[in-house]
Amino acid sequence: MPIFFGRRIACKIAAALIAGAALVAGVGAAGAENAKLRFAYLLADSDLPILVAQKNGDFAKAGLDVELTEVQGGPAVVAAIASGSADVGYASPVPPINARINGINVKMVMALGHEVDPDKKFSWLIASQASGIADLAGLKGKKVAVNANGSLCVLTLSDHMAKAGLKMEDVELVVLPFPQQEAALEQGAIDATCTVNPFFSSIAKNQAVGVKILAEGVLADEREPVLNDVIFATDDFIAKNPDTLKTFGKVIFETRQKLLADRGAMEAAATEFLGLTSEAAKDFKLPVVKPELTISEAEVQVLLDAMKRAGMLTQEVPVKDMVSNMAP
């Protein structure tokens, strides 16, 4: 026994410290090759074309070296980009807006999904039958779940409640990840929630919940298409690699067109990449309203106004600092 901590203890400790330092010093900056694009995303329906394109080698064929990193939640995507672990990211528009307001230099470069009246809706406010909530006004004093703070869901809830004359303080807010919401509704732990697919279609089929749809869509007013999913990048990357971004967008666009034209391929991809059961994949829809990926300052301004009404904006930043259209 004393042999282990005998003569060589100094070496061992030194080795441990060096190993620790090496771990901390870790990976340095990667080589700055133009065609390299590191993409951080949270798993959602809109990613599907990107995942399919990567698997089929479409990015490589277009001369891009795309590296995909999946993370949990919009703030984590921003964190990945801000820390230099990724160049480009996908999330709902709220995290990049929040990031810009707080001094993180990212801009939205493409739109991946929209919602519009009457039936292209991809987020829902729902209540369980047991809660006795019949309409938006009925939310007053109830337990309502959102998936995360500072998320699109918070905006959804506050915008619709404002229409019914309610404020956020009128409900008891619970932060609960999407996967737990169905059980929480059925067990009566929450009365209402904001949800997206595939969870919505699962809850809608659940007789025990007896779902009551209170509102559809992120904003109460969706006569014009409302931005739902965006791709964003750092100012630095946009300035240095405009062509890379354009090629990236072009490949996404083409893959998405192919998927939209081929229902079988779409369902197969939803099963493979989103992990859906083949049954759930039958209900799968891409949130596509406009075929092209163009993003405009006007549609971001709509969201900014809504966030301002909801009290989600801590300070004002001009919309031109938030958007830089890079769609092909």
């Binding site: 771990l23 901390v24 010093a25 870790g26 990976v27 951080a40 990193t69 993370v71 984590a76 964190a79 990945a80 801000a82 820390s83 230099g84 672990s85 990724a86």
Partner: peptide
């Protein structure tokens, strides 16, 4: 920590 260290082994 993600902001400061990225997503890697660090």
């Amino acid at each position: 920590a993600v902001f400061m260290l990225g997503l890697g082994p660090k």
